[in-house]
Simulated assay, not measured.
Amino acid sequence: MGQAALPSGRTTYPDLIRLDGQTQVVLGAGQGIGREAARALSQAGATVVCVDVDSTRRAAVVRETDGIDIGADVTRRDDLRRVAREAKQATGRLDGVIDVVGRALWKPLLETDEDDVASQFQVSFGHAVPVLQELADAFTAGGAVTFVTSLAAHSGAPGAALYGAAKAGLVSLVRSAAVELGPAGVRVNAVSPGYTRTARSRPLPAAELARRVGRVPLRRVGTAADIAAALLYLQSGLAGFITGQVLVVDGGVSTRPTYE
């Protein structure tokens, strides 16, 4: 179902990005990257299970995608188990998960406390383990899981110590999960966005925004659609032989030298 390339002559490359007949779950579908990812999956033919804690945001994306509405707190294992059960009851199958759930804590390291550590790791990393255990384990016949990490996982930044560490843990989890789940036909990957303007982005003064744009080789900041396009690719058959990888989507920022 779109997860593996077919022999030459039996399909076309545009066919491989189609997700017709598949059921794809988006965790954190209510806004920003999650909402755009749900749109992308729907346009590629998938039935999209839109999962979010906010019923108003969730209802809006369900209308846009003609998707399935499931309210859940993804930090709760029982909720994730229910998502898998209800998704399969509604469509008869489960083929993929995109997980965009995370929360960035911007706080100087020496000012953080135990509650900050626990909260940051639970929301940005800890929930990913039961996502794999409860959702990926329920896939119908192989499938794909793609997590959204962050450029903070690959480099240091003031105030991003806990967030970066949590996302770096997620990167490591992706690689090991890919090895363990690969024999079952499950691919596990991640997308690491650079600065991306969404409704949840930290507001930046005009001068700071201009400075950031000036450091991007493509001379603009990312959009939710940029990230959703990468997520769709990794969920599709075009990426059928790709697993355990992290795709950085940052307009080229990470290719620049640290000191210039």
Rank of each mutant, 00 (worst) to 15 (best):
A5S: 12
S8P: 06
G9S: 01
R10A: 14
R10C: 08
L16P: 00
Q22Y: 02
V26P: 07
V26A: 03
V26N: 06
G34W: 07
R35F: 00
L41R: 00
Q43W: 11
G45M: 04
V51N: 01
V53S: 14
V53L: 15
S55H: 11
A59L: 11
D66F: 02
R76M: 04
L80D: 01
A84V: 07
Q89M: 11
A90H: 09
G96T: 12
V100M: 09
L105M: 01
T112D: 02
D113V: 03
E114C: 07
V117E: 00
F121V: 05
F121T: 04
Q122L: 15
S124D: 09
F125C: 09
H127Y: 02
L132I: 06
L132Y: 05
E134L: 02
A136F: 08
A136Q: 11
G143Q: 10
T146D: 05
V148A: 10
L151C: 11
H154Q: 15
K167L: 12
L170W: 01
S176V: 15
A178T: 06
V179Q: 15
E180R: 14
P183M: 10
G185T: 13
P193G: 07
P193Q: 04
P193F: 10
S201P: 08
L204G: 00
P205L: 02
A207P: 03
E208L: 15
V216D: 11
V221W: 07
I227W: 11
A230F: 01
A230R: 12
L234W: 02
Q235D: 06
L238W: 01
L238Y: 06
V248K: 04
V249H: 08
P257C: 10
Y259D: 10
